[in-house]
């Protein structure tokens, strides 16, 4: 039979992977419609965590409400981010400007700037240290299953991620909003000529993606009881790695890669010190970029 320690690590790794998946979806959706990297996605995650934390300390609502507040805060952050850092650089006039490197790099840097501003602002308001979270809200109550112990947070993260993934699939495949998102991803200019409001579609994509990222933030905050302004950086990079591994515009690819990342990261701690576990993600990133430039699942990618 398996070593219980390994099983335990697998459970933790799965939760971690689900969190990365929630964030990676945001990256992937945004990359899909705009073909750009949103460097401020990690800060949206932090904003979600802080919004939930503020709600808890202000009026102590039930957990579900906390999650909704984080979701809403993330959605709002996504909206503002799109308006401030992305829309000023967008000119949907012709194919060339749409795919231009200048636009990509300008938005990459403007979102980077936004992420610095957001993180530093939070540091000025809340200080850079860990925030204390009301113990009653922590989702780390142990649950024994045979020889291994998981926490209720594992189950909550699993459930929330499944609901979000299911909801997203429904949204993308069955709703008119999803149709316009898919259309813009496929060919933004064509979609515009077909009468789709590309600007609105892009905003909605940011809202959805950022809402999910913020949800991931509050879940992690309550899972580890650690909320601080710089918390979004590492998960942001890992979600990005998952997106690249998944082939950039494939949501299932990103989700599977995120779970692979989470599992390998938590299993790596069984044979090396946990301070090196971030190395796993960076290693995956470089190996993917060098050896599988199409992503692990062979999705198409254009020349960027």
């Amino acid at each position: 039979m398996f070593d219980p320690y390994i099983l335990q690590q697998l459970a933790i790794g799965l939760s971690l992977g689900m969190i990365y998946a929630l964030m990676a979806i945001g990256f992937t959706l945004i990359f899909g419609v705009l073909n750009v990297v949103n460097f401020a996605h990690g800060e949206v995650y932090t904003i979600g965590a802080f919004a939930g934390l503020m709600a808890i300390s202000a009026f102590g609502p039930p957990l579900l409400v906390v999650l909704f507040i984080a979701l809403a805060a993330g959605a709002f952050a996504g909206f503002s981010l799109e308006r401030l850092a992305f829309s000023p650089f967008r000119r949907f006039s012709d194919e060339a400007s749409l795919k231009s490197r200048a636009m990509r790099e300008a938005t990459l840097m403007s979102s980077l700037a936004m992420s610095i501003i957001a993180r530093e602002a939070m540091e000025m308001i809340f200080g850079s240290q860990f925030q204390s979270v009301d113990l009653a809200y922590l989702i780390n109550k142990p649950i024994n299953i045979g020889p291994i112990t998981i926490v209720n947070g594992d189950l909550i993260i699993f459930a929330v991620t499944l609901i979000m993934l299911g909801g997203l699939q429904w949204l993308l495949k069955k709703s008119p909003i999803g149709l316009s998102i898919r259309a813009v991803s496929n060919n933004a200019l064509g979609a515009k000529y077909c009468g789709i409001n590309t600007d609105r579609t892009i905003i909605i994509t940011f809202v959805i993606g950022s809402g999910m990222g913020a949800l991931a933030g509050i879940l992690v905050g309550l899972y580890y009881g650690a909320i601080f302004p710089a918390m979004g950086f590492a998960p942001g990079i890992k979600a990005f790695v998952a997106m690249v591994m998944g082939g950039l515009s494939s949501i299932p690819g990103a989700v599977i890669s995120a779970i692979i990342l989470g599992l390998s990261e938590s299993l790596s701690t069984s044979f090396m010190s946990s301070v090196w576990s971030d190395m796993v993600a960076y290693g995956f990133l470089l190996l993917t970029l060098i050896f599988f430039p199409q992503g692990l699942f062979g999705a198409r990618r254009d020349r960027v």
Binding site: E105, D278, M279, L286, L289, I290, P293
Partner: peptide, 28 residues
């Protein structure tokens, strides 16, 4: 040697990853 063939933003991300790896070495 391996990363120079990458296109624009992929190169940016690769340098970010390498920078972080070196940082982890400094730190740990």
């Amino acid at each position: 040697l391996p990363t120079m063939r990458l296109m624009s933003i992929y190169f940016a991300v690769a340098t970010l990853g390498i920078g972080q790896m070196l940082f982890l070495i400094f730190q740990n």
